[in-house]
Structures are given as structure tokens and as C-alpha cells.
Design a protein around this nucleic acid. Structure first.
Lengths: 177, 177
DNA sequence: TCAGTATGTATGCCGAGTATGTATGAGAGC
DNA sequence: GCTCTCATACATACTCGGCATACATACTGA
């Protein structure tokens, strides 16, 4: 999803061709998201198919094909921006499944798993801090704000791990069958 | 990913056929994750193709085909459980792209957008609280623990929104081109 | 001339959803 | 007791979007 609307957002204002879209997108994300070039082109094709985008100026030099937003494209973009992001669905994340399985089949190894996760989160915290610093140094306040969000998430994860590891496991509550 | 290993985890211990896998999986997640039945079967086929799972007892009554874990399957599962979950990649989430685009093209509407997001998170908080309560009532401590994680996440999101909306925007920091 | 970069196409895997099909057992009505 | 119907258990096939790899080709600068 986000790539689709990211492309639309970049095309708002000026027409771009695929390669440019890729670069602008990655620049916008400060290099934290490397998009696959093939994906850009298929996304553009689908956008064209759906009438949200249309080719402009038949094939400039060197096969470059630029696209611009159609009126429908503008509408779709505005609409997306106007609705709240719903985030990932309730509990659809790997870590949840992993935790459940670990609880029911590896009761012993659970504390170690929590410790491992905690270490991973600490590492991520360090990475994000460095990233935030860099963003500020580059004057990318907008990026720094994103990183701040990721930091808060990671802190929440850490807190979660701490809560879990201080529980005493034993009287387990799996579903009765 | 999580579905793949979820299936492996369920198959550890006893062989199951597709439909059973679906039901057990959804039960494990306390109904918060409805899996598509088609996905279960394709997942099983791929697992079989990759040798992590193998059919057991040729086609029981009425087409039912049960599967069991192969030794490689056990290994793969144990390995997955033994490694830390890396979570979603750095800043690859819709909300980040939405925030960036909103900053650069809809400077005016940003505060409204933050307010909308905040409302959505508050709603989610309520849902999760209800879910946690239900899990505890049902004796599903394991599930309640997951919900606790989701709650902490959502609280972090809220805090983020608060931080953002108390910034004064204006001197924006987009990338210079 | 050679390396690198700009630019694009083709192809394939996986996640996920829809649509469809077949057996079976439980109940409704005669 | 028999049939018709409906729900449900169980499975397959098809489609679409996300994402990655591999490949092809031109231009550009050392």
C-alpha cells in the first residue's frame, strides 16, 4: 500500500519516470527503505491500468516514460491522506505467533527467548538513535519525527519484554481442548 | 512467515489436516486472526514441497489428508523459535509514508491528521482492553500477554501523536534538492 | 575501453482473497 | 421411514498485489 500512495504523492506536483520515482522515494525515506526497481515499474503499470496515473510526453530520450497524476489519482491520494492509518491488524505479527508457540512447546526456553528479544530491541534502539542524530544533522526534521515514532515503539517492546520476563511462568493458560 | 511456522508449530505433536490446522490456528490466536482456508492449503503444499512436512496415512475418509512434521520440519521450527524476531523493517510502515506526504503536500491539514490518528488509536486501545479482559476471563493468559504487547504499542503510538501535535510546524525540514 | 550508472523488461515466489465443488449429517415436512 | 434441504467439514483453483532476481541496453566519464 504505502508504495502505491508514495508514488502518487511524489507524482503530485511534477511528472516523473520510474527511475526518478525510485530515487525520490528513497530520498524521502532518508535511505531507510530501498525499493526494488522492478516494483516501481509494476506499481506504475497498475496505477496506469487503474487510471490513477497516465503517461505524459511519449517516451522521451532513452526510453524514459514519465507519468503524471490523473484527476482520479489526485482524488485517491487525497482520500488516502484523509483517512486514519489502521496499522497492522490486531495480533498479526510474527512475534506473537512465536511467543505463543514458545509458550506451548518450549516452556523451558522461554526466558532465554525473552532475553534474546530484549537484546535485539536494544540493538535496534541504538540503530535508531544513530539514525535520528543523522537526520537532525542533515536538517531532515520530518525524518527525525518518524524515527522518534520507531523509537517509542521499540521502547514499548522492551517494556513488554521486561514485564513478561518478570512474570513467573508455570501455571500456563493454553486453551483447553 | 508466521503462518508457515504457525502451521509447523501446530503439527508438532500430532498430525493434522488442513481444516483442523485452520481451526487450531484461529483458536490459538483467540479468534483475532481469521486465516483464509486457501492459504492454509497452499502453505501446506509448499511445506511439503520443501520437505518440512509430509503426508501421513494416504487420504483418510473423504479426501482428508493429514500431515506430520519431517525431521527437517522439526529443525526448521526449532531454529525459527531460537532466533530473535526482527519485527518490521525500520521505517516500512504506511503511517510513516503518510506522515511524510502529509507534511510536504498538506501542511495545513497535518494537525487534523494527527487528531484523526489519535482518535483511531484511542479506539484501538478500547478494543484491546476489551480483548484482554475476555482473554483473562477465558483463562487464556498466554493470549492476554500478547494483547498486553499490543496495548503497549498503541500507547506508544498515542504518545508519539501527542509529541508531534505539540510541535510547532512551520520551519519544515524536507530534503533540499 | 571498461566500469559504473541510468533505465527498463521479464519472471517467479509468496501472502492473501474469492469462487467453486463435494461429501456428510441433522432437521423439517410428509 | 423417506426425501429434501441446509449447514458444515473439507478441499481445489484462480486471481491479484508485494516483492525480489535476473537480464538487457544505453550513456558517461576515467
Amino acid at each position: 500500500m504505502s508504495l502505491k500512495y508514495g508514488v502518487l504523492g511524489l507524482l503530485k506536483g511534477e511528472p516523473l519516470h520510474g527511475y526518478e520515482v525510485k530515487n525520490r522515494f528513497e530520498a524521502m525515506l532518508g535511505g531507510t527503505w530501498e525499493v526494488n526497481i522492478g516494483q516501481i515499474y509494476t506499481t506504475l503499470q497498475r496505477l496506469e491500468r487503474d487510471g490513477l496515473v497516465r503517461p505524459v510526453g511519449r517516451r522521451g530520450d532513452r526510453g524514459k516514460q514519465s507519468y503524471e497524476l490523473s484527476p482520479e489519482g489526485h482524488k485517491a491520494l487525497d482520500q488516502w491522506l484523509a483517512e486514519a492509518d489502521s496499522g497492522p491488524q490486531q495480533l498479526h505479527e510474527d512475534i506473537y505467533v512465536k511467543l505463543l508457540l514458545a509458550t506451548r512447546i518450549a516452556n523451558g526456553g522461554l526466558q532465554q527467548m525473552l532475553a534474546r528479544q530484549k537484546r535485539a530491541y536494544l540493538q535496534r534502539l541504538r540503530d535508531l538513535n544513530r539514525l535520528e542524530e543523522r537526520a537532525r544533522r542533515d536538517g531532515r526534521i520530518d525524518l527525525a519525527r518518524l524515527v522518534r515514532g520507531a523509537l517509542l515503539h521499540t521502547e514499548a517492546d522492551l517494556k513488554w519484554m521486561d514485564e513478561l520476563s518478570s512474570e513467573r511462568f508455570g501455571a500456563e493458560g493454553g486453551a483447553a481442548e
